[in-house]
Simulated assay, not measured.
Amino acid sequence: MITDARALRPEFVPRDLHHRDGQIDHLSSVLAPIQFDSAENVTIFGPSGAGKTTIAKYVLSQLERESLGIRWGYVNCMADNTPAAALHTIVRDVNLGADLRRRGEPTSLALDRLRECDDQVVAVLDEVAVLDERPLVALADLPNVSVVCITIDEEEWLTQLSSRTTSRMQSAATVRLEKYDLDELIDILESRATHGLIKSRVDDEAVKRAADIAAGDARRGIALLRRAAQHVEQNDARELTIEAIESVVDDAEDDIQERRIRSLGTHQRLLYNIIAEAGEISGSELADEYEERAYDPKSTSSRRRYLESLRRYNLVEASGNGRARQYRPLT
Results as ranks from 00 to 15, higher is better:
Asp4Gly: 13
Ala5Thr: 12
Ala7Gln: 05
Leu8Ile: 00
Phe12Thr: 00
Val13Cys: 11
Val13Ala: 09
His18Thr: 10
Arg20Thr: 09
Gly22Ile: 12
Gln23Gly: 04
Leu27Asn: 01
Leu31Thr: 03
Ile34Lys: 03
Glu40Leu: 06
Asn41Tyr: 05
Phe45Pro: 00
Gly49Ala: 07
Lys52Ile: 10
Thr54Ile: 14
Ile55Glu: 02
Val59Trp: 03
Val59Phe: 04
Arg65Glu: 14
Gly69Trp: 05
Val75Met: 07
Asn76Ser: 15
Cys77Tyr: 10
Asn81Lys: 06
Ile90Cys: 00
Asn95Gly: 10
Gly97Ile: 00
Arg101Asn: 15
Arg103His: 13
Thr107Ile: 14
Leu109Arg: 12
Leu109Ala: 11
Leu111Arg: 06
Asp112Ile: 05
Arg113Asp: 00
Arg113Met: 03
Cys117Glu: 03
Cys117Gly: 05
Gln120Met: 09
Val122Arg: 01
Val128Phe: 04
Val130Arg: 10
Leu131Lys: 11
Asp132Phe: 09
Leu139Ile: 00
Ala140Ile: 01
Asp141Arg: 15
Ile150Leu: 15
Ile150Asp: 08
Ile150Trp: 10
Glu156Thr: 07
Trp157Cys: 02
Gln160Glu: 15
Arg168Asp: 05
Met169Asp: 02
Ala173Ser: 13
Val175Asp: 06
Val175Leu: 05
Leu177Met: 14
Lys179Asn: 12
Asp181Gln: 13
Asp183Ala: 14
Ile186Gln: 01
Ile186Tyr: 07
Leu189Phe: 05
Leu189Lys: 03
Leu189Met: 00
Leu189Asn: 02
Glu190Val: 11
Arg192Gly: 06
His195Ile: 01
Ser200Arg: 13
Arg209Tyr: 08
Arg209Gly: 11
Ile213Gln: 09
Ala215Asn: 14
Ala215Cys: 09
Gly216Ile: 07
Arg219Ile: 12
Gly221Met: 04
Gly221Tyr: 08
Ala229Asn: 00
Gln230Val: 08
Asn235Ala: 11
Asn235Leu: 09
Asp236Ser: 11
Ile245Trp: 00
Ser247Asn: 10
Asp250His: 11
Ala252Arg: 01
Asp255Tyr: 06
Asp255Ala: 06
Ile256Trp: 04
Ile261Phe: 03
Ser263Pro: 03
Gly265Ser: 13
Leu271His: 02
Asn273Tyr: 01
Ile274Tyr: 06
Ala278Met: 06
Ile281Pro: 09
Gly283Arg: 03
Glu285Phe: 09
Leu286Ile: 07
Ala287Asp: 13
Ala287Met: 08
Ala287Asn: 14
Glu291Thr: 15
Arg293Trp: 05
Tyr295His: 14
Lys298Pro: 01
Ser302Pro: 01
Arg305Ala: 11
Leu307Thr: 00
Ser309Leu: 08
Ser309Glu: 12
Leu310His: 03
Glu317Gly: 15
Gly320Glu: 13
Asn321Lys: 14
Gly322Pro: 10
Arg325Pro: 06
Tyr327Asp: 08
Pro329Gln: 14
Pro329Lys: 13
Pro329Gly: 11
Leu330Pro: 02
Thr331Glu: 03
Thr331Ala: 10
Thr331Arg: 14
